[in-house]
Design a protein around this nucleic acid. Structure first.
Lengths: 248, 248
DNA sequence: CGAAATCTTGAGTATAATCAAAAACGGTGG
DNA sequence: CCACCGTTTTTGATTATACTCAAGATTTCG
């Protein structure tokens, strides 16, 4: 549980390298980061709103999500997380968490102390920039989701989210060209898109009937990527993936 | 137009100081930042989606907003900006802008080159942190808006936004306890909240009838702050204002 | 195999959208 | 100071997307 496995840092390093070229020193410093590895069951909070954490969590395997709750008990998922993400990186500079992070399926996470991250940032300003940049891409995703939730009808909204997830998964090698494993339930899609589960279900059926998506179990296949992109009004610019091939 | 007026930096310095205590050196470095002052008319884009800017804009006076457009031409405002904000600070690390920024009323902005900001950050890591923190607070605002748009009905959504705006304006000295000047039209409220102008209007009337708000011209008065907070399910934590008095 | 979670279906309803047009407001210039 | 024009706000009638509630089917997993 408390051991440090350097190889586990790979998803993070891969993600940082997609934005900036790391020197050997910088890569080594990242590999030397002490990680506390923890396996977490499905549907468990990793961190909770109101916490004042002294560490961040690096998602190493599995899907997770960031969410908030209204006073009436309604849940809004504001982002999904895939391996390589640090869902609570903002806690490095914001004392109190204004959201919770939960697993969607069984996950392994690596906890990194703020102290270790601060030392790393102090020594390697380019790593600071890369981390900062990551939080800026998250913010861009928030803007895109807000636009979808505020302005698009449910059908297009779902199409947009599916496009985003496929592109993000491809960027970390977790999806083939037009198919991927999505452990997200219809309840969770509803929580993310601001629509009820019942309506998510009806829209999914319509999309299947229209030949836009195919599902078996958690496996999602996109028969016609161009058409899905068009329906979802999807422009991947906001994901700021520098290697363009991932977004095609 | 191209002159440098040190006194104009004040809104930025005030904002940074609300989060971290600046040393004299740091404050002086901020005062020495070269600013290109520009006056901009109402309803003009300051920067536009797709741009690859080489400078950021510091809002010195007036209201502005960040927005995106869907392919169908619908507009989503994702944030309002008040003096002291740097609406496009993310362009320092994300090459392409994925949103536009526009004035809402006549504004004065100060353009700061990326070069100058990078030099400043290199020399003063704590200023880097303060800037990073600012972008993290913006992201927190995005999360809060997403929750509102996705989960709250129009009436509560408007109440929540009015609470946020009043608290933010108080934090920069632009509002008294329970009243402020809001140059935001009902069209713009609709664009920000994901509801139509017609519906915004009907909800405003209901809120006036319920004694939740009073308006004359652009002047907004909140007769019962506690009740508005309750209706809007407003918890100011996400604004991460360290001086708590502003949020009461 | 069996319980729990997830997905699906149906009927009735509500919040908010749409479309169209009128009233009020705010600033400008004669 | 008042007339005028564009913007913003307001009103009305109709429609639609999505919600609610409730229950049944299916899948998943221990």
């Amino acid at each position: 549980m408390n051991s440090t496995f350097h190889r586990e840092h790979n998803p993070l390093i891969r993600k940082l390298e997609s934005a900036i070229a790391l020197t050997d020193d910088e890569r080594q410093a990242l590999l030397d980061l002490p990680l506390q590895l923890v396996a977490i069951k499905a549907d468990q909070d990793i961190v909770r709103i109101g916490d004042r954490p002294s560490r961040c969590c690096l998602l190493l395997s599995g899907f997770a999500c960031t969410y908030t709750m209204t006073g009436e008990g309604k849940r809004q998922i504001v982002n999904f997380h895939i391996p390589g993400d640090i869902p609570d990186l903002q806690s490095l500079h914001l004392r109190v968490l204004d959201n919770s992070v939960a697993t969607i399926e069984p996950c392994t996470v690596g906890f990194i102390t703020h102290q270790a991250l601060r030392d790393l940032c102090r020594r390697y300003p380019r790593i600071t920039e890369a981390f900062w940049r990551n939080t800026l891409v998250d913010a861009a995703i928030f803007r895109a989701w807000m636009t979808s939730i505020g302005q698009r009808e449910a059908y297009d909204r779902i199409a947009h989210l599916l496009c985003e997830l496929l592109v993000r998964l491809r960027a970390v090698g977790l999806a083939e060209d037009h198919t991927c494993d999505l452990p997200i339930t219809q309840v969770e899609f509803g929580n993310a898109l601001g629509i009820t589960t019942v309506h998510v279900n009806r829209v999914f059926q319509a999309m299947r009937a229209d030949g836009l998506i195919q599902t078996k179990g958690t496996r999602l296949t996109i028969p016609d990527w161009e058409r899905l992109k068009e329906v979802g009004d999807f422009d991947p610019t906001y994901l700021h993936l520098e290697q363009e091939d991932a977004t095609k």
